[in-house]
């Protein structure tokens, strides 16, 4: 059984078919890079998995739990970082993370302990008690990651987590995801930045016009398409897609 399983997933918007029967299986402990051009259906897929968007057809499960019929139970296992998100500007990260922890069903004592733990892991400790509005973009992304990790989920769904970050910030986010997978947990992240994918992913999936058109390890894909890097693979696959 895969940590994440998607079968024949469809999503129709008014005049656009965003997903046309997506099939995807992600094994436990993998870092899976979900690549594709704008509008390919990456964000829609992630949003369906966390119950923010309703699918038109197909099946999806996380840890064997049906996300459509038992979404609440499925979401207990998920840490989600949207592509764009906001946090209460006047709050401190500690207060914001406390609220997210309560919403995840944690006790106050567990939340306090967990906040310190995560803050240590992702270098957030010094900013825990500053107002969010005074915190830099890179550190805000750390808070975003911390809220996804607060309830110690076994599956991470990150939507474009490195977009807009400087190289140091990008590397830290990538390291966090890799470290998470090294603990046996599963990471699915969407991105345009293929060098990020090459650095940390076990498997890469390329989605185009709502369908998965290529999948494999970065090395396999490079060899298959006789390409020097994933950018080249992506251009070849997407142009034929």
């Amino acid at each position: 059984m895969g940590a994440i399983e998607i079968k024949g997933l469809k999503k129709d918007y008014k005049d656009v078919q965003a997903l046309k029967g997506l099939d995807l299986v992600i094994e436990e402990g993998q870092v899976y890079g979900f690549c594709g051009p704008n509008g390919a259906g990456k964000t829609t897929t992630l949003k369906i998995l966390v119950g923010l968007v309703y699918a038109t057809g197909g099946e999806a499960s996380i840890k064997g739990i049906d996300v459509f019929n038992d979404g609440v139970e499925a979401r207990r296992h998920v840490g989600y970082l949207p592509e764009s998100y906001g946090m209460p500007r006047w709050d401190t990260p500690r207060k914001f993370l406390t609220y997210m922890g309560i919403l995840s069903g944690m006790s106050k004592a567990d939340i306090s302990k967990r906040i310190e733990e995560i803050a240590g892991e992702i270098n957030l400790t010094d900013n825990l008690d500053r107002r969010i509005k005074a915190i830099s973009k890179g550190n805000k992304q750390r808070i975003g990651i911390a809220q996804a990790l607060i309830h110690d989920p076994d599956t991470l769904l990150f939507d474009e987590p490195t977009t807009g970050l400087d190289p140091i910030g990008r590397n830290e986010v990538l390291d966090t995801m890799r470290a998470f997978a090294d603990k046996g947990k599963t990471v699915l992240f969407s991105t345009h930045i293929l060098s990020d994918v090459e650095k940390i992913c076990d498997t890469v999936g390329i989605i185009h016009e709502g369908l998965l058109i290529e999948e494999g390890s970065p090395e396999e894909l490079r060899q298959k398409h006789e390409a020097e890097d994933l950018d080249e693979v992506f251009l070849k696959v997407a142009s034929h897609g």
Binding site: V50, G51, L52, V78, G86
Partner: peptide, 15 residues
């Protein structure tokens, strides 16, 4: 919605 928090909150295990 405008603060883009709704996605964070509703991705929690609540209906």
């Amino acid at each position: 919605r405008t603060g883009e928090r709704i996605g964070l909150v509703l991705s929690r295990p609540i209906t």
